[in-house]
Amino acid sequence: MHIIIVAERKLAYFLCRTFQAKKYDVTVINRNREDCSWLARRTSATIVFGDGSSPQVLQDAGAETVDAVLAAAPRDEDNLVICQLAEMKFHVPRIISLVNDPDNEQVFRQLGIADTFSITLLLSSLIEQRVDSVGISNLIPVAEGKITVTEVRLTDKSPAAGKAMSEIQMPENSLVACVLREDQAIVPRGTTVISGSDRLIVISVPQNHSAAMRILTGEPVE
């Protein structure tokens, strides 16, 4: 997997670390010379100094052959142009964009960039969720918030503890996608017995999110 990342210093650095741990081949495009040498010293990624929204710079970064482009610049208009050039000029198979203004998620989709994530929305929903309940975290809205992915930490007092999955009546359009037990990730079957020390990854529509949390943890949410 070869990916081009267009991002500022810190974000580029942490993305590099994450992707390189997964053995991705990473190229970073950054338009600040100092940031570039800073990144070059700290990561083994290929660093390209230049404006990622310039066709020439994208080409130098190998856009013709990469598998993915991640546009994570601080300004939405730059990300839009990066994505459009990657798609129209270089035919990159997978293009993902950060949007800063949440309104732009919709706008980008209308302009043909379907794969976006909004940091603002992610953060605000995370914060809301953390405030709600300490046992529930990592709420990720997917598909414009039509689906939420939540991590739930159970206790021995949780109603789900000690029950087999088939005995737990999950509300409609919700499911326990994964059970995290010690270092293992288990995709549960009906016979899987949930323990009080498990963490569960729950996928649900937002309307049934609270009901699902109540059934699993017993805590009323919201």
Binding site: S53, E77, D78, L80, V81, V107, L111
Partner: peptide, 27 residues
């Protein structure tokens, strides 16, 4: 700024359906 212009122009054309849109692009 080229990218600002390109974004504004496309939003005007595709979202607001403005019939005539002109963009300055320096590059």
């Amino acid at each position: 700024e080229d990218n600002v212009n390109l974004m504004v122009a496309q939003v005007a054309k595709k979202v607001f359906k403005v019939p005539n849109v002109m963009v300055r692009v320096n590059d």
